[in-house]
Amino acid sequence: MIPVILILDQDVKITEALCPLFADEDIRLRRADSLKQALEIVHREIVVTIVLGDVIPPPDIPSALMRLKSAAPYAVKILLVHSNDLARSVSALNSGEIFRLIVRPWEPEMLRQTIKDALYRHEVVLALKEADEATLRSLGQAIELKDPYTKGHCDRVAGFALLIGKALHLTPEQLTDIRHGSWLHDCGKIGVPENILNFQGELDHPDFEVLKMHPTWGAEVARQANLQTGVINAILHHHERYDGHGYPAGLKGDDIPLEARIVTVADVYDAITTRRPYREQVYSLSEAMDIISSMAGTFLDPDLVRIFLARINQPGLGPPPTEPAPESPLWTH
């Protein structure tokens, strides 16, 4: 059965504009002018992406999302809104139920690319559900392609995180969760536009707020795929800070799951020892270690920092000598 992109909007021009753009794709576009009709389509066809437009009034979006999720749990949803409804729609985006929000007037190519990204997310969720280790790692590497500055990032983070996990004598199951969480910690970036990921310089507030959603979006993907709790924790909380000033939940100290605290140390270390689009300064190994040490108790768990620094100076475990490293602020992106 051919997969379906479902458009819930009164404007037939959306479907008309998208049809030629997807003419060469093995996919079908369908339109519904009511939630009832949409649910009928969902029950009889394979709907992989849903564009919610003006058929659903903003106050009814949460209940409509619940009904659509019940009927098509893995369908990725895009919300198309008018600017005056934007504030009332943000909660749906923040909940993780909406993959991307587009404010009218829409442009056909932008909507097409957003739908293409949504189709990719759908593939990721299904792949994760059946994934072996090779597939999980490959997915992490594929996600890196959205951001050329992070090539090899997931493998390096996994190596650094496992260095800490093994020093703590964690169980094989915990180490597996940390490895998988390291590979997938940035999987939510499939929902972040590439112009934000690759922006040269410091992001403005609205764009940074979009970027800050990637842990929540990634955790939702992992939940849909029924991954282990430890993996979800690493994805969701790898931007929490030990002092409670991180995101998305503002957790503090040991309230941050251990898997996330470990992955955060590894993630930050890799961020300051590799090139990023928003900083250029190169640090030596000793300078990078000093920076990590200075973050203990604020950004990072001080006990994990101590363990990490005791081991990272071993031969072969420092930053690659050919990789430039960034200057502070350290892990903005």
Rank of each mutant, 00 (worst) to 15 (best):
D267W: 02
F160D: 04
G297F: 06
V125R: 03
R279F: 11
K116A: 11
N84D: 13
I262T: 08
L139C: 00
L258Y: 09
L300P: 12
L68W: 03
L39A: 09
L227P: 00
A296M: 07
I27Y: 14
K77G: 02
L251D: 08
C19E: 15
E202Q: 11
V81H: 01
V192F: 05
S95K: 04
R179N: 04
H180G: 02
L39M: 08
P62C: 02
G230E: 07
L285F: 13
L35S: 09
L197A: 07
K146M: 03
V48T: 15
I27M: 13
P257I: 06
V12S: 15
K212Y: 08
P62S: 05
I262G: 13
E323M: 08
L39D: 06
G250I: 00
I272G: 09
R104G: 03
K151G: 06
M1P: 11
P329C: 05
M66H: 10
L101Y: 02
V221Y: 14
H239R: 14
E287A: 14
I5E: 01
S83C: 00
D177A: 12
A17N: 11
M295V: 01
Q314L: 12
I2A: 12
E97R: 14
K212A: 13
M295S: 09
A71Y: 02
D267K: 13
S294E: 09
G250F: 08
I7H: 14
M66D: 09
A127K: 07
I61G: 02
F99G: 05
E123H: 13
T49H: 06
I98C: 02
E144C: 08
P20Y: 10
W183A: 03
P315A: 02
I178G: 07
P57S: 07
S284G: 14
A234Q: 06
K129P: 00
D290S: 13
Q37N: 15
H185I: 04
I98K: 00
G218A: 10
Q314I: 00
I5Y: 04
E45Y: 13
K77H: 10
A158D: 03
